[in-house]
């Protein structure tokens, strides 16, 4: 294992900003794994730390295939995590909206440029991603439908779902999108949570990443089998929104099976405790996403259900 400083920048009053990478194996750029890029991606950081720990052992045991190089960057934005801020500590910009970056541009553009310079040309790119809405997911692989995505390879993670979605204009500045444009097979892995730690869900993600690397003969590290992945798109999702604002009490979680008409959640009047609305499942399916903050606005997307017909 070789520990490398990928990017360093001094700060007026803080310690130097450093992005640290851990390289394993010798040879072609085979797989790059990126953890937290935002300051609240604790789960993502944890997953990467465990991957580094396991790769150290695997490398010592001689079980990284010859000619394969693996790079793990557990955290591309330690400054924000140390302040518990999601985005860049000074100007609130999002590094994951700055790719492919610009080395003569603004600070986060330069960080993205340095990162991308290191991350490009890997055969496979895995990013531990998070969602812009607060909630829990069934762990899954997410891919942008750029025309370059490879859902066949995504099945090697053996996670329950592969979610392929149409890119929106703002997605064009994300790492996943740019990896794909630059011929890296890119996968975003949603490990369930953001800003919290769930070690069981993290283990599931870690197993999935090693399953992938094992299937691709990058490492020899047999894992227990996972799922036969189901490919889903927005057409398979039934979105459930709150009709009322108030205090939200959730009765089901991500990965729960529900029947049409099942009670999913209640919205409670914040003054007198009356039930303002009972959220019923509009279909039979699996809860793919569940909002988890205790307050909801009107029209908040509180569940996404993958319909089972």
């Amino acid at each position: 294992m070789e520990k490398k400083i990928i990017f360093r920048m001094n700060s007026p009053y803080r310690d130097d900003f450093r992005i640290t990478g851990f390289e394993f194996g010798v040879g072609e750029k085979t797989v790059a794994i990126v953890g937290a890029m935002r300051g609240d991606e604790i789960q993502q950081q944890y997953v990467c730390a465990q991957i580094v720990k396991r790769l150290m052992k695997i490398e010592n045991d001689g079980k990284i295939d010859k000619g394969c190089k693996i790079l793990v960057i557990p955290n591309a934005n330690p400054f924000s995590m140390n302040l518990e801020k999601r985005f860049w500590s000074m100007d609130n910009t999002d590094i994951n909206r700055m790719f492919p970056g610009y080395d003569k541009g603004e600070t986060t553009q330069r960080i993205a440029a340095a990162l991308f310079d290191t991350l490009k040309n890997y055969t496979y790119g895995i990013q531990l991603a998070s969602f812009y809405m607060p909630g829990e997911f069934v762990p899954h692989v997410r891919m942008l439908d750029t025309g370059y995505q490879d859902t066949a390879d995504a099945k090697f993670f053996e996670l329950p779902y592969i979610y392929v979605r149409k890119p929106r204009p703002y997605d064009s500045t994300m790492l996943n999108y740019n990896w794909q444009i630059w011929n890296t097979f890119a996968f975003s892995i949603y490990s369930g949570l953001t800003n919290q730690l769930n070690t069981d869900l993290a283990e599931e993600t870690i197993h999935a990443i090693f399953r992938f690397m094992n299937s691709k003969r990058i490492v020899t590290d047999l894992q227990r089998h996972g799922y036969v992945s189901e490919i889903v798109t927005d057409d398979n999702h039934v979105v459930v929104q709150s009709k009322k604002a108030g205090i939200y009490t959730k009765l089901v979680s991500a990965n729960h099976a529900v029947e049409k008409g099942d009670l999913l959640a209640r919205i409670i009047d914040p003054y007198n405790g009356d039930t303002l609305d009972e959220i019923l499942s509009p279909c039979k399916g699996i809860v793919f996403f569940a909002h988890y903050r205790p307050l909801v606005l009107e029209d908040t997307i509180i569940f996404r259900i993958i319909e089972v017909k």
Binding site: N92, Y170, V239, I301
Partner: peptide, 22 residues
């Protein structure tokens, strides 16, 4: 700068979505 409790810049979500989040 943005909409509180919503990660995306409001000037990056037009034309919006009548079935989307608030």
């Amino acid at each position: 700068r943005g909409i509180p409790n919503f990660d995306l810049d409001m000037n990056r979500i037009f034309p919006g979505d009548p079935r989307g989040a608030m």
